[in-house]
């Protein structure tokens, strides 16, 4: 093999070097440079741009938060949500406990019990947001796409425990019925070609 690539030690491929003008060699040349830059009027070009932007109307770059909010990416990982099943309105969470297990900040806990129908019921679910590092592992590991991140990043509150209980995270029924529950396209969501990974199991029916 060619060793050419190893010999080129001074640069990483793809970088373009800017050829700056040569530095003045003595005091006379330095003096000439100062005079040249001053007389050229570059100072006023800059001042003009600032003045122009200042007096143009409706040209503010400041976001007027909280009256104004920046849009965030769909995969942004803010406070968690527990979603409901589209057909039955039931909670998606089956209480498998994988999020509890994978959580590296150890901030998820759940209480489960056997309900009257012989199913596993999640009586309580909590995330300690004082500890959560929003890594997204819980959303990634969830087999039911039940726990996801939302875009709600505003979580200032007078109580530490706010936002962290099941009733805070679960999609309220009115929101759900208004079809406002959003799927999360970030961590844990199925890829577009997920179907192609599935092998067909023979059926006897």
């Amino acid at each position: 093999m060619s060793l050419e690539q190893f010999k080129k030690r001074d640069a990483t491929p793809g970088y373009i070097y800017f050829q700056a003008e040569e530095k003045p060699k003595n005091a006379w040349e330095a003096f000439k440079r100062v005079v040249r830059i001053s007389i050229k009027g570059e100072l006023f070009v800059g001042l003009w741009i600032v003045l122009r932007e200042m007096i143009t109307k409706g040209n503010s770059h400041t976001v007027q938060y909280p009256a104004e909010k920046l849009p965030i990416g769909p995969r942004y990982r803010a406070i968690h949500k527990l979603l409901r099943l589209l057909e039955s309105e039931n909670e998606r969470c089956i209480g498998c406990g994988l999020c509890e297990k994978i959580c590296i900040a150890n901030c998820i806990r759940m209480d489960t019990r056997l309900d009257e129908n012989g199913r596993k019921q999640i009586t309580e679910y909590s995330i300690n947001f004082g500890r959560c590092i929003f890594c997204g592992y819980c959303a990634e590991v969830c087999p039911e796409l039940a726990i996801v991140h939302s875009g709600d990043y505003e979580n200032a509150s007078e109580q530490r425990a706010h936002y962290g209980l099941k009733e805070d995270m679960l999609t309220p029924l009115d929101t759900f019925r208004a079809k406002e529950q959003k799927e999360f396209p970030g961590f844990g969501a199925l890829s577009e070609n997920a179907d192609s990974f599935v092998k067909k199991t023979p059926l006897a029916y």
């Binding site: 209480g95 498998c96 406990g97 509890e100 297990k101 489960t112 019990r113 056997l114 019921q121």
Partner: peptide, 9 residues
């Protein structure tokens, strides 16, 4: 013990 806890916890 039914549905009380995961063994790994």
């Amino acid at each position: 013990f039914q549905y009380k806890s995961n063994a790994w916890e």
